[in-house]
Measured scan of single mutants.
Amino acid sequence: MDVFMKGLSKAKEGVVAAAEKTKQGVAEAAGKTKEGVLYVGSKTKEGVVHGVATVAEKTKEQVTNVGGAVVTGVTAVAQKTVEGAGSIAAATGFVKKDQLGKNEEGAPQEGILEDMPVDPDNEAYEMPSEEGYQDYEPEA
């Protein structure tokens, strides 16, 4: 019985440690998101679009440190934060509304985080759909 109880105690310690790591990862992701939003706020009209992409990228980098179902929630929060940063930029006159959601080359930025393969159960990952990809044929 002692062996059984000791095993359960060790398992509990492992769960607590994993929860603490997840909590730490979420806190880091939130900190990076805040950094990115402050970065966007300090940019001029020309830099705002690039700044919004930076927020998304920093958040995406930190999301990889967070495991399990938390990833889905962090990704949703990050996307809403990026959308909010863009709205703030438009409201303050840093950028025109028609410039939001495009990178410096004018290509749409939507789907940055949505296409990231995420499995809350950590069982399997699927690649994003290939609808947006084109076949590449090298020139002879």
Rank of each mutant, 00 (worst) to 15 (best):
T92A: 13
A19R: 05
V26C: 14
L113K: 14
Y136K: 03
M1Y: 00
E137K: 06
D119G: 15
F94H: 15
V55R: 01
V52P: 02
F4L: 06
E131P: 11
K32D: 00
D115I: 09
V49W: 05
K10M: 04
A90C: 15
Q24I: 15
V26M: 15
L38E: 03
T75L: 11
K23G: 03
P128E: 09
G25A: 15
T44G: 06
G14V: 12
G14Y: 14
K80C: 07
E35V: 05
D115Y: 14
V40N: 00
I88L: 11
V118K: 08
S42D: 03
I88D: 02
H50Y: 09
D115G: 13
K6Y: 02
D121C: 07
K60P: 01
V48I: 10
L8V: 07
E105S: 08
E137G: 08
E114Q: 15
V66Q: 02
Y39T: 06
A19D: 00
A107W: 07
D2C: 12
V40I: 09
E105I: 01
E83N: 09
V74P: 01
V26H: 00
Y133G: 11
F94G: 01
T72I: 04
Y136D: 01
A69F: 13
E139D: 04
A107P: 15
P120A: 13
E110M: 08
K97D: 09
A78M: 11
K23V: 07
P117N: 06
V70N: 01
Y133M: 09
A69N: 09
E57L: 11
T75Q: 12
T33K: 00
V26K: 00
A19S: 05
D121T: 10
K21G: 00
L100G: 10
D98Q: 08
F4E: 00
Q79L: 09
K60W: 13
V37I: 05
K58F: 05
M1R: 00
P108S: 09
F94V: 04
G51W: 13
E110W: 04
S42E: 14
G31W: 12
V48M: 12
E105L: 09
M116C: 13
P138Y: 07
Q99Y: 05
K6D: 02
A90P: 02
L113Q: 07
V77G: 05
K45S: 04
A27R: 15
S42C: 04
H50F: 04
T81P: 02
A30M: 13
T59S: 06
D2H: 07
E83C: 06
K21Y: 12
T33N: 00
D98L: 11
E137T: 06
H50Q: 08
A17S: 11
K102W: 11
P120S: 08
K60H: 04
E46D: 10
G47I: 11
Y125K: 06
T72P: 01
K32S: 06
V77E: 02
V16Y: 14
G67A: 05
A76V: 08
N65M: 05
A53M: 15
T75G: 07
G106N: 10
T92E: 03
Q134I: 04
A53S: 04
E139W: 10
N122M: 13
E110T: 11
G73I: 12
P138N: 05
G73S: 10
E20I: 15
Y125A: 05
G14T: 14
E110C: 06
A78P: 02
S9G: 13
T54N: 05
A107V: 07
V95L: 13
V63H: 01
E61D: 02
T72C: 05
D115E: 11
N103W: 11
D115V: 09
N122Y: 09
G7Q: 01
T92P: 04
G93Q: 15
L113N: 05
V48C: 07
Q109W: 15
T22S: 11
E126G: 11
A140W: 13
G132P: 04
L38H: 14
K60E: 02
T81I: 14
K80F: 08
G25T: 15
K34T: 03
K102I: 09
E130Y: 08
V48F: 02
G67K: 08
D135T: 09
G86T: 10
A140H: 12
T64E: 07
V55M: 11
K23I: 03
E123M: 05
K96S: 10
E46S: 14
V3R: 12
P117L: 03
P117E: 02
F94Q: 14
P108H: 12
L113W: 08
E137Y: 06
A78Y: 03
Y125T: 09
K96G: 09
A11V: 08
A17G: 07
G67V: 13
N122K: 15
M5N: 05
P117R: 03
D121F: 11
K21N: 11
V95R: 13
K32A: 05
A140M: 08
A78S: 05
T72E: 14
A85S: 07
E83Y: 11
T92M: 02
E20V: 04
A27Q: 11
V48L: 10
G36Q: 09
G68Q: 02
T72W: 03
H50D: 11
N103K: 04
E13Y: 15
Q134V: 05
V52K: 02
G106T: 07
D115L: 12
G14A: 06
I88M: 08
A89L: 11
V55I: 07
E105N: 12
V15D: 00
Y39D: 01
A30T: 07
M127L: 13
I88T: 04
S42W: 10
A91T: 06
Q109M: 11
E35Y: 10
Q99M: 08
A140Q: 15
G31V: 04
T81V: 11
G67Y: 04
G93L: 15
E28Y: 03
G7F: 05
A56D: 00
G132I: 09
S42Y: 06
M116I: 10
E105Y: 12
D115P: 13
E126M: 05
G41W: 09
G47Y: 03
E131S: 13
G101H: 07
T81G: 04
K80G: 04
G132N: 13
M127W: 06
V15M: 04
A29Q: 04
A85R: 03
T92W: 14
E130D: 11
K10F: 07
L113H: 15
P128V: 03
A27S: 06
V16Q: 13
K32Y: 10
E20W: 12
K34C: 06
G106S: 13
G106Y: 07
E13D: 10
P138F: 04
M5W: 10
E104I: 02
K96T: 05
Q62K: 04
Q79A: 09
G86C: 12
Q99A: 11
V49D: 02
E28N: 02
V16D: 02
P128S: 05
P138K: 06
N103F: 10
G101Y: 03
P138G: 13
A29V: 09
S9V: 06
E126K: 09
A17Q: 14
T54G: 05
A124V: 08
G111Q: 12
N65F: 07
E104A: 13
V48Q: 00
V82F: 14
H50A: 10
P117M: 09
K23E: 01
V52M: 14
E104L: 09
K80S: 13
N122R: 14
A56G: 09
E105H: 02
Q134H: 02
V63N: 00
V48W: 07
P128H: 03
K58E: 02
G93Y: 09
K80N: 02
P138I: 02
E139A: 01
E61Q: 09
P138L: 02
G7M: 14
E61C: 09
V37M: 13
P128K: 12
E139M: 07
V49K: 14
Y136F: 13
G36C: 07
G47T: 11
V52Q: 00
K43N: 03
V37A: 09
L38G: 02
S129M: 09
V37R: 00
S9Y: 03
A29Y: 08
Y133I: 01
A85H: 04
A90D: 03
Y125M: 03
E28H: 14
E20F: 12
V95P: 07
Y39M: 06
A56H: 04
Y39A: 05
G86L: 05
V49A: 11
G25N: 02
V118H: 11
Y125R: 05
